[in-house]
């Protein structure tokens, strides 16, 4: 065998072993899973209309929920130490145009002041989960809040960037419907994935968004509403993603990879054989 050819063979083998070895090593070190509970809401891709105003639509029961624990809001005054809603189950669907998100949570009584909200970061700047409040070392962005209250019977599409800046938007794009039964609220929020409004979260299938939740128990205790304003059950940021449509081009690349690898083997063997003959 000529040295050059042998060197080529050696190089080919090294690359082969290194590549396969590296793949196996990195495949055996998956990224760590989140702590207890879910870390993300998945909006499943469906065909046809999304159940935009029906919290009890049959399709919801076919979807595996994400579950998030909630804490009393102790981050800023007025605080609260004990809240009614302890956790929320979240389900979501989209059809490429519209999305619907169902929040399901336990609340023993149905009250006029019961309320629920979903919060999103808007745009590229990171925003603090507490109404996009000011951060000292980095410039934050806006948050988009979808707010539903039983007595209003509809959603309010809102914007905030810092405390006391929460305000309804000019363009109201969100709708919401709630249904209470046997100690459980089911509230469905819906909107189109894209609105073209710079104050709204724009949901692009395949891309991750930051999402947080808040709930108020509007029960009247001693003549006053139990949870209102900043006294609420909250989560900090979690993730949300609309499922992208299946991408079949992957299989093309897989076939290409197999063909290239087989071709490499063929030429390698031919090269060695010719080297042996010469």
């Amino acid at each position: 065998m000529g040295y050059k050819k042998i060197f080529n063979v050696a190089l080919g083998l090294t690359l082969m072993v290194t590549g396969v070895g590296a793949s196996c090593v990195f495949a055996s070190n998956p990224p760590p899973e989140g702590e207890t509970g879910s870390v993300a809401v998945r909006l499943f891709l469906t065909e046809g209309a999304v159940p935009a105003d029906d919290p009890n639509a049959a399709v919801w029961n076919t979807i595996e929920p994400a579950e998030f624990k909630l804490a009393p809001q102790v981050h800023w005054p007025d605080r609260i130490q004990e809240v009614t809603v302890k956790s929320v189950k979240v389900r979501g669907v989209h059809n490429g145009e519209d999305m619907a998100i169902l929040l399901e949570y336990a609340d023993p009584s149905e009250d006029a002041a019961d309320a629920a909200a979903v919060e999103f970061m808007v745009g590229d700047k990171m925003a603090h989960f507490a109404h996009g409040q000011e951060m000292l070392q980095i410039e934050g962005g806006d948050v988009n809040i979808w707010y539903w209250k039983k007595e209003h019977g509809k959603a309010t599409d809102m914007t905030a960037k810092g405390f006391k800046t929460l305000r309804p938007q000019e363009n109201q794009d969100v709708s919401a419907t709630g249904a209470w039964q046997d100690g459980t609220w089911r509230v469905v929020f819906s909107r189109s994935l894209q609105t073209g409004d710079a104050l709204d979260v724009q949901v692009t299938p395949g891309e991750w968004r930051n999402v947080a939740f808040a709930f108020w128990d509007g029960e009247i205790v001693d003549g006053d509403v139990k949870e209102k304003g900043s006294q609420k059950a909250i989560s900090s940021w979690w993730y949300l993603r609309a499922e992208p449509p299946p991408d079949n081009s992957i299989y093309g690349y897989v076939v290409l990879g197999i063909v290239l690898a087989a071709g490499f083997e063929f030429f390698l063997v031919r090269k060695i054989r010719r080297g042996n003959e010469s």
């Binding site: 396969v20 793949s23 990224p31 993603r241 992957i250 897989v254 290409l256 690898a261």
Partner: peptide, 23 residues
């Protein structure tokens, strides 16, 4: 000779398959 191309194919798939894990 059979397994090597299949391994390459499998690696291509795992690299390109969309991940459900958040960032």
């Amino acid at each position: 000779f059979v397994l090597f191309p299949l391994l390459v194919g499998w690696q291509t798939y795992t690299r390109l398959a969309p991940s459900d894990l958040p960032p």
